[in-house]
Design a protein around this nucleic acid. Sequence first.
DNA 1: TTGACATATCGGTAAATCTCGATATTATCC
DNA 2: GGATAATATCGAGATTTACCGATATGTCAA
Lengths: 100, 100
Amino acid sequence: MDLIEVFKALSNPTRLEILRGLKDPANNFPPQDEGDVLTVGVCVSSIQEGVGLSQSTVSGYLATLQRVGLVEVRRIGQWTYYKRNEANISALAEAIGKEL
Amino acid sequence: MDLIEVFKALSNPTRLEILRGLKDPANNFPPQDEGDVLTVGVCVSSIQEGVGLSQSTVSGYLATLQRVGLVEVRRIGQWTYYKRNEANISALAEAIGKEL
DNA sequence: TTGACATATCGGTAAATCTCGATATTATCC
DNA sequence: GGATAATATCGAGATTTACCGATATGTCAA
């Protein structure tokens, strides 16, 4: 895990807000029609509505979070669901505690 | 502690290198004439020599690290010594483990 | 007080990031 | 196949960051 790239990803307020929001997706994002928000994740349009930026910006932010391993993606039909990658996030917290 | 500002500070390779280097200053920076590197810290010119960037850049980076609380400063005579603020760094690691 | 040294600050240029609207892609439904 | 919906990608303009050299500030010593 590239610490520098992770820190870059986390140093944007909206990306940090998204990652934190995904901790309790049902309460932090508008409900979506299909798919359980906890097991499958939250779709891009729900996240977009939650943070209030343009669709392209939010899509890009999610791609960034996924590239560095903080979230995982699952495409179902026309929807793309994002949820936290808890394993990697725990590993990161531990790495920061040790390597920093 | 402003997480966003801390992440910004940490997302520069040189600043991260400095912070990590200060974990074992005697081995990571050239020796300096006065002041014990462990208790009092490392002076700017030693750090500059260690990382190989210009004096103004390194001075600015150290100011950034101090502004967000990752290092502490002590001026003695004409020298400014920097060392890690271990209390804040531990607090940060814990905050990341919980709040992230 | 003058000179030498350590550090800080300032002004500038190049590169990266933020964010948007427009457009491309992919999947669904009739 | 064509319309529609969800998402991704592609420029582009504005802002921020990365550095540098030059200069200012503070400290010591002769």
